[in-house]
Simulated scan of single mutants.
Amino acid sequence: MVKLSREITLFAIGGVGGLVVDTGIVQLLVGLANWNPYLARVPSFLLAATFTWWWNRQYTFAARRSDRAAHAEWLHWIGLMSFGAVINYGIYALLLMGFPALHPWPAVPAAAGSVVAALVNFSTARGMLFKSPKTPA
């Protein structure tokens, strides 16, 4: 149980880092580059998911293995995180549609979607990618 709570804590820390990347990128693209707030989530998701893959590989699931080469593991991570991304994006879009005043502040609905999606992302990361304990070399 201690190991699971440690993984949850580290996953949450990495998630906060990913949230900073995601919301920072989407806010910059919309606020400074005048991107469409719906399209801006594509690069912000990819960069945030890349950061969280790196974090979780190095820290959260350091005692687990995926049995994949790094590039294949990253692709699998992006695929798995896409489930959470659909939830995240759905909440994001609903909030933008329901509250047009949020259009200049896309970081707010992005953060709301991220909180809900985090539960799905932890479960899929731990149960489907980093599912096997590392064996001592």
Rank of each mutant, 00 (worst) to 15 (best):
N36G: 15
A111N: 02
L29R: 02
G18M: 00
A70G: 00
M97Q: 14
W77P: 08
L129S: 15
P106V: 12
L80M: 11
V21W: 03
F122M: 01
V21S: 08
L102K: 08
N34F: 13
L80D: 11
M1I: 01
P109E: 07
V20A: 10
M97N: 14
G31P: 01
E7N: 05
A69N: 14
Y89K: 14
K3S: 00
F61W: 09
M128K: 13
A48R: 03
G14F: 06
S114D: 09
E7A: 09
V30C: 11
V86Q: 07
G14N: 07
P37N: 15
A63G: 13
R65Q: 01
A49D: 02
N88G: 10
L95D: 02
G14S: 04
A137L: 01
G79I: 11
A101E: 13
L119P: 01
I8C: 03
T50M: 02
L28E: 12
L129R: 13
G113V: 04
W77F: 14
G14H: 08
A93P: 10
F45A: 03
A49C: 05
S132C: 07
Q27A: 10
L96M: 11
R126G: 00
R6W: 00
L96H: 08
R41N: 13
N56R: 01
W105Q: 04
E73Y: 01
V16C: 00
G113M: 04
F51K: 00
P100V: 02
F83C: 15
M128N: 15
A70E: 00
A107T: 11
F122N: 03
A101C: 12
D22M: 05
A101K: 09
G79D: 12
A72Y: 09
A118H: 04
E7K: 06
G17N: 03
A125I: 01
A125E: 03
R68L: 11
I91S: 11
A107E: 14
A72C: 10
M97T: 15
I25C: 13
A125K: 01
K131Y: 04
L119F: 10
F45S: 04
T60M: 00
G31A: 09
